[in-house]
């Protein structure tokens, strides 16, 4: 198992390198000069030259490339051209909010996906199964921002049950901040009113994302569990007197998990980037909102940093998924 994990980590190093390379060269060939974006179109050429020299943009492209790799290896993602702050520091400030939203959305999506999908597979052809199929097609076709707006309209504007924007109400942030994830910080500090406020703010955005993604999961889980339920070892387990619930969840679902987990892992990684729409709809102060802002202001260092950050995160998630799969399925491990 240990050697498997090590190999898997080793294998993702070239993958990250390739992503870094692509990000670097794509941003270099894109139209738009970062220096002009910073200084404005009317900046005198001498100032532009000086700035280019300061940023190392006058060096040969391969030297720039090697410098860039060296810096990232050191954890230096460059400085934002808008705020002058280190990009990594800014990202780390925004990241907890995005992580919080992503995790809760995944919880919603996985919960709906596993239970609805498994029960639909078990009751194949029944009204529950048909409803599951309609649900996944219907919900999959929801645009995220539209669905978010609808939830805001119903639960915020009409019913006044839940807040429609932001991560917390004014003066309701946890103090002190440990992790940046408000829910966790509120629990650590024992500030229960803050916890309640944070949860209320979290419900609508995570439901929006979670429900939309659950549509894929319901279908995936259903299809895979239908497959495992038809296998001989399921009948054999029943013939040993194993309870139906155990047959369904321990034998059928667990054997169906590896492909489902792979998709879930990819979705989790995609969510970090896909949360952009949700974050903007709900004014959620995460990386998605950050990225949109910086694209508007042509902050190349910040854009590059965010993409690299996502890429590394995706790599880490896919290592985790593989390790979990290996843990479930002995054949992968041996």
């Amino acid at each position: 198992m240990k050697s498997y994990i090590l190999t898997r980590i080793g294998l993702s190093i070239p993958m990250i390198l390739i992503i870094l390379t692509i990000v670097f060269f794509v941003l270099r060939v894109l139209p738009g000069n970062p220096v002009l974006a910073m200084l404005g179109p009317k900046a005198p050429p001498s100032v532009v030259k000086a700035m280019e020299h300061q940023m190392g943009l006058d060096k040969p492209i391969l030297v720039q490339y090697v410098d860039y790799l060296k810096n990232i290896a050191k954890g230096d993602f460059g400085h934002s051209t808008v705020t002058g702050m280190p990009v990594l520091k800014e990202l780390m400030q925004k990241f907890p909010a995005t992580l919080e939203l992503t995790i809760f959305s995944m919880v919603v999506a996985v919960f709906i996906g596993i239970f609805y999908g498994t029960i639909a597979a078990y009751k194949l052809g029944s009204p529950i199964d048909i409803s599951a199929r309609i649900y996944s097609i219907f919900v999959y076709s929801f645009p995220v921002f539209w669905f978010g707006l609808m939830l805001q309209l119903i639960f915020g504007v009409w019913l006044h049950w839940l807040p429609v924007s932001g991560e917390s109400s004014p003066f309701m942030t946890p103090d002190p901040i440990h992790t940046g994830i408000y829910i966790l910080d509120a629990i650590i500090n024992g500030q229960w009113d803050v916890l309640k406020d944070s949860l209320e703010h979290l419900i609508l955005p995570s439901l929006t994302l979670g429900i939309v993604i659950s549509s894929i999961f319901v279908r995936m889980v259903r299809a895979n569990v239908v497959l495992t339920l038809s296998q001989q070892f399921v009948v054999a387990a029943r013939a040993r007197g194993v309870k139906e619930k155990t047959v369904l969840f321990k034998h059928a679902l667990k054997n169906a998990l590896p492909p489902i987990l792979t998709i879930m892992g990819l979705q989790f990684a995609l969510l970090l980037g896909g949360a952009v729409l949700t974050e903007v709809t709900f004014s959620w102060p995460g990386i998605g909102s950050y990225l949109v802002n910086r694209i508007h202001s042509r902050d190349f260092a910040a854009i590059q940093g965010t993409i690299v950050f996502f890429a590394i995160f995706v790599a880490i998630i896919s290592i985790l998924v593989d390790v979990i799969n290996a843990w479930i399925n002995p054949r992968v491990r041996y």
Binding site: Q232, F233, A237, V242, K254, N255, N329, P330
Partner: peptide, 29 residues
Amino acid sequence: RGKEIAMIFQDPMTSLNPIMRVRDHFFEL
């Protein structure tokens, strides 16, 4: 089932749960 009447099947390749050790098949029973 399994206690008074037991059954074995035609295809031994697929009759055991592939992700359970043999031990756990017994223990479950």
